[in-house]
């Protein structure tokens, strides 16, 4: 029963995201300065938001794991790190595609780009640590501590645009004096952010469920072999 509910939710999110992308590409007007190329913000900004939000999700699962030592928390942490890594890569790739026509280069060692790249490396480091430790309490604690350290790094990434001289544009949505974006672009962007964040949470949930099932099958097989 619960399986079909989750499948239904997944399909609903897929339809919502496809509808939003259709609107982004074919319905909304082009930007007055950047023309058509700006449309990538409807994927780039939500992906960046989700990758940052997932770092705080990692903080949550890490704290939960350290507090309860529950085996489920390590699957949740791994799922968050995997999806966080994917969304950070998506942010970097879409940023790079946007950078070529607007800055003239695919990549530059700009503060925001570099710190986002560092976030991707940290997610990858978390996954590496998870894989190189034996299952159990030690892994819950070690990956939990690292999850907290990664979350501490995220405010730096967010503030990097204002702290350092950077090519990347300053925050357009959350700034003093209100947003500089056109209302229709802003509202569509907010809806896209909410939708992609929900997709990322859905993916985390399903991945954690898969990891737990894998583990249960492994334990069952080992028990059968032992018996």
């Amino acid at each position: 029963m619960s399986f079909s509910i989750w499948n239904g939710l997944g399909r609903l999110l897929l339809v919502a995201v496809l509808y939003l992308w259709y609107q982004s590409i074919f319905v909304l007007p082009p930007d007055i300065h950047q023309g058509e190329v700006y449309r990538i913000i409807y994927l780039h900004v939500p992906a960046a938001f989700a990758s940052f939000a997932l770092a705080f999700g990692l903080l949550g699962t890490s704290l939960y794991g350290l507090a309860t030592k529950s085996p489920g928390s390590e699957f949740a942490s791994k799922a968050v790190a995997e999806i966080g890594f994917l969304f950070t890569l998506l942010t970097l790739v879409t940023g790079s595609i946007w950078g070529k026509p607007t800055w003239g280069v695919w990549w530059t060692w700009d503060a925001r780009l570099t710190t986002t790249f560092i976030l991707a490396v940290l997610y990858a480091g978390h996954l590496l640590l998870w894989s190189s430790l034996p299952p159990g309490l030690g892994r819950i604690k070690s990956t939990g501590i690292l999850g907290i350290l990664i979350a501490v790094d995220v405010p730096i990434i967010y503030k990097s645009v204002t702290w350092w001289r950077t090519l990347h544009q300053p925050p357009s949505m959350m700034r003093e004096g209100g947003s500089t974006m056109a209302p229709e672009i802003l509202s569509h962007l907010i809806v896209s952010i909410v939708a992609l964040t929900l997709v990322s949470l859905y993916l985390v949930w399903r991945r954690a469920d898969n990891l737990k099932t894998e583990w249960m099958i492994e334990v069952k097989t080992l028990n059968q072999l032992g018996a």
Partner: peptide, 27 residues
């Protein structure tokens, strides 16, 4: 010290330590 303690029992700690230490030391 904290990172060294958490990678102490990892299989590939010689590789893992710099992978974690360098990005976290950036700020």
């Amino acid at each position: 010290v904290l990172l060294s303690a958490i990678v102490m029992n990892a299989d590939s700690r010689a590789l893992l330590f710099p992978v974690l230490f360098f990005p976290l030391s950036v700020p």
